[in-house]
Structure formats: C-alpha cells, structure tokens
Design a binder for these strands. Structure first.
Lengths: 160, 160
DNA sequence: CATCATGACTTGCCCAGGCAAGTGATACGA
DNA sequence: TCGTATCACTTGCCTGGGCAAGTCATGATG
C-alpha cells in the first residue's frame, strides 16, 4: 500500500477529502432536492429537470432521444417519466413527421404551469445549498472544474 | 423575469452553466460508477462506500446509526444493505454491549476481501473521471468548494 | 415500580429505474 | 423488391430505496 507507484491503487489524503466531499454532494444533494420538491410540488428533482429542459426548447418541443441525452437519462427512464407526465396532461407525444422512428414531446400548458409554480422554491433551495456557501471566485472555480468532469463523465456513459 | 431583484426567482447565465454541470455530475457520475462496480464486482457505488467506511473504523466496527451518518444514508437504507451483506457473510451485526439500543456492525474477512479486490478498478475509475481532467490547482479549488457545499447539504438533511 | 417518552433499528408497502427483450419505422444490400 | 441491419422507443421483470408503522431497549416521571 505504501510501496506503489504514482498510479497507486489508492487515493492520497487530499484526494480522499475531495472524494468524500464529492460523494456527499452526489448522494445527499439530490436527496435534499428531491425531498423539497416532493413535499412542495409532488415531483422529483429529475422530473423537474425534464420539464425545465423541455420548456427551454424551441416550440417547447424535442425528440425524446435528444431530451434523454441532455437530461443524462436512459431511454426507458425518460419513457416512463413521459408516461406519468402524459397521464397528467403535462406533455404530449407524437411521431416526428420527418422521421417516424423519432417521437416528439411538447410541453403542454399544464406542464409549463407546474414548472412555473414549483420553480421559485426549488431555485431558492438550489441557491441556498449550492451558491450561498461560496464566494464569487469559488463559484467560478467550481464551475470550471465541474464542467470538465461533466464532459468526461458524459463521454464515459455514451461510449460505454 | 428581467425585472426581479438580486434575490431573483431564477438563475443567471453563469449560475445556469454551473448548475447544469453539477446536475450532470450528480446524475451521471453515480450512474457511471454503479455500472462499472456492478459489472466488475456485483455491488453498487453506495455499497462500496459502506464497506470502505467500515474498513476504516477502529476494529472495523461501527454503530449502525454512525455508519449511516457518515455514508449519508437513511437508516432503512443501511439496514437493508446490512441484510444483504450479512447474507453474504461480509459483515456481522450484534447488539452494543454498552447500550442495547445500538447495533454494532463489524466487517468480516470476506467483506474486507471483497473490498480489497474491487478497490483497484474502482479507484482507477474515480481517478479517470474526477481527478485526471483537473489540474492540481483545480483540484484544490474543487475540494474547497465541495467541502462547503457538502457541509451545507449535510445540515439540511439532518435538520429537515 | 408502573407508565410513558425517546431513540435505534427493522419491516411492509409502494414506486422509480435498470436491463433485456419486443415493436415499429427507416435505410441498405443482394 | 425483399429480406436484413439499424435505430428510436416501449414493455416486463426484478431490485433498491423512501416513508410510515412497528419492535425493542433505555431513561425519566409520577
């Protein structure tokens, strides 16, 4: 354990600290966001993200495969989310006229309303948990580092 | 939307970018780690963390409530993980002699062996996805920022 | 000492999500 | 033109985890 080369099988102390903090964030942050959104709006953090992404798209419409990609979702997961959303009248699905293999999803008015009414508390929570504890410089550094990691992880999931 | 004060209900562009990168990391990073560990070792990232934490404790023994806390786990979740681990002979549970309300968990040899044999590939994956993309300075900045966020999120979950 | 409150842990019920197999649509090759 | 490969998406089966209720041990209170 102490006799390994620089590509050791273990993490050194600084790396351990970073890794532990990152584990806490990836485990506990979604849990905290889910609890708040579930309580206030009856949806999960992931579902909120799907609504938000759709709302930003042109005509509030996207192909499911593209929506899955930007939400870091598998296709079955998104498919089931859309089942729930469609049942509540929040989105509509229809075949893509230009290629029948694709399916277009459009955010309905009820869906946009749900998003708008749950946004304030959710955004406040995000600010409280993520932005408020940091200085402006720390935010910049964090953004830069996370962007690099996010790109690496995305490649990993798409390639594997 | 454009006429709100500094405590706006929305995120500005820089915040959006950071937030999106963080979302990708909290969603896709656990997924990537889970896939690799599941394939190579048949355990989840969370289960690996439980084994690792226990192995670091004095006598490889901890109270369940304390273990749950450091693993950012609820008690039912950890309880079920321990059911699975005990069935495989990886841990043993027994009442705390000094207070029968607590339960002590001890990592068994088979559990330590499982940890040791799955560690190298897992650690390599962590390095590849998290550390390799960053410069030394970025790692320090990231560690500092994540530590602050982790502390805030921990307080949130314990207090709520 | 009986009762009641508290705190640690477990159990049961329910639902979300992963994976693998199935369906339908389009492109491609013989 | 007729399979055949390739996508995009959906469905079924199974497991993990959240929540709320239940159990058990301890401590406090009359």
């Amino acid at each position: 354990m102490g006799l390994m080369n620089t590509q050791s099988a273990w993490l050194d102390d600084d790396q351990q600290d970073l890794w532990q903090a990152l584990l806490t964030v990836v485990i506990a942050l979604p849990a905290a966001l889910d609890r708040q959104l579930q309580r206030e709006a009856g949806i999960s953090n992931f579902e909120y993200g799907v609504l938000a992404r759709l709302s930003m798209a042109d005509e509030a419409t996207m192909r499911l495969s593209e929506l899955a990609r930007v939400c870091d979702s598998t296709q079955p997961r998104l498919s089931k989310v859309m089942d729930r959303f469609e049942a509540r009248g929040w989105v509509a699905r229809r075949p893509d006229p230009s290629d029948g293999r694709y399916t277009l999803a459009t955010l309905a008015d009820a869906g946009r309303q749900k998003l708008v009414e749950s946004a304030p508390e959710h955004v406040a929570q995000v600010k409280r948990l993520v932005f408020d504890p940091l200085s402006a410089a720390q935010r910049r550094h964090l953004g830069a580092a996370l962007t690099r990691i996010a790109a690496t992880v995305r490649r990993e999931l798409e390639g594997g």
